[in-house]
């Protein structure tokens, strides 16, 4: 129906309707339905869990390829967090690992044709970013109390500059969840739209006979190239999300720069 509509891939469709509240009329109350988005969230979690559990099932001293890839993923995230937040930050390792793998697997799932991309919806990325900032602020105050506010007062800055520096620090802190969520959402959304537009050119031109087939070669090449690029973007955005999370967690662990 919407074969070449680049927006159709983002449509959320109810699979198991669950409606709470409201007076029964359409649009009222809250829609908690199990949707195609929910399905791919669950699939993402299932895939990550299956992968890590399978990789660690044999527990062999000399790892197989599967076990090695699981260990590499583990060590990759562990090193990333350790280099950013230090040894004390390692208590957030399960959190950062879950974030990284969730975003990575969701992005990669999205590249499979007909699969829904969970991270292409801003509410998902905003929720993840807000979760990160909640953990940062919550742990920061829990661990350091009011001293956590030193985060906004860089050490060694002369007093007369503070009225300028402190608001800048506060604004930069507040803009973190925005940039964190919009970066991931924007990259994934734009990539998928571009991919769909070029793929749509191929279909549209292919319907025009032999001349169209000839003209479809260029968008086809573009589609292949953008698909490769999107694989890169999927991995890089997951990495960026996890690295920034690690750095923000570092602020919570060591607030005085």
């Amino acid at each position: 129906m919407a074969g070449t509509d680049p927006i159709h891939q983002f449509v959320i469709e109810d699979m198991i309707p669950i409606h709470l509240g409201g007076d029964g009329t359409a649009g009222s109350g809250l829609n908690f339905s199990f949707t195609n988005s929910s399905l791919f969230m669950v699939l993402t979690v299932a895939a990550i869990t299956t992968f890590v559990l399978l990789a660690s099932s044999k527990r062999s001293l000399v790892p197989s390829r599967l076990q090695l890839s699981g260990e590499l993923l583990y060590e990759f995230v562990a090193n990333m967090l350790r280099s950013s937040a230090g040894k004390e930050g390692m208590k957030f390792f399960p959190f950062v690992f879950s974030l990284f793998t969730f975003v990575l697997f969701a992005n990669l799932f999205g590249l499979v044709p007909y699969f829904f991309t969970v991270t292409s919806h801003i509410i998902v990325t905003v929720a993840l970013a807000v979760l990160v900032m909640t953990v940062v602020i919550g742990y920061g105050f829990f661990r350091h109390g009011p001293k956590f506010l030193k985060l906004f007062v860089p050490a060694g800055v002369p007093g007369y500059v503070l009225p300028i520096v402190v608001p800048i620090e506060i604004i930069s802190f507040l803009s973190r969840p925005v940039s964190l969520s919009v970066r991931l959402f924007g990259n994934i959304l734009a990539g998928h739209i571009t991919l769909k537009v070029f793929a749509g050119f191929v279909v549209s031109l292919g319907a025009l006979g032999w001349l169209g087939w000839l003209g479809a070669i260029l968008p086809l090449i573009m589609t292949v190239a953008i698909t490769a690029l999107e694989f890169l973007v999927a991995a890089v955005q997951a990495y960026v999300f996890a690295v920034l999370t690690s750095m923000y967690l570092n602020d919570a662990v060591h607030p005085s720069h």
């Binding site: 949707t35 919806h121 998902v124």
Partner: peptide, 8 residues
């Protein structure tokens, strides 16, 4: 679609 996405 937000409530459903947030819940799941």
């Amino acid at each position: 679609t937000f409530p459903s996405q947030l819940l799941w």
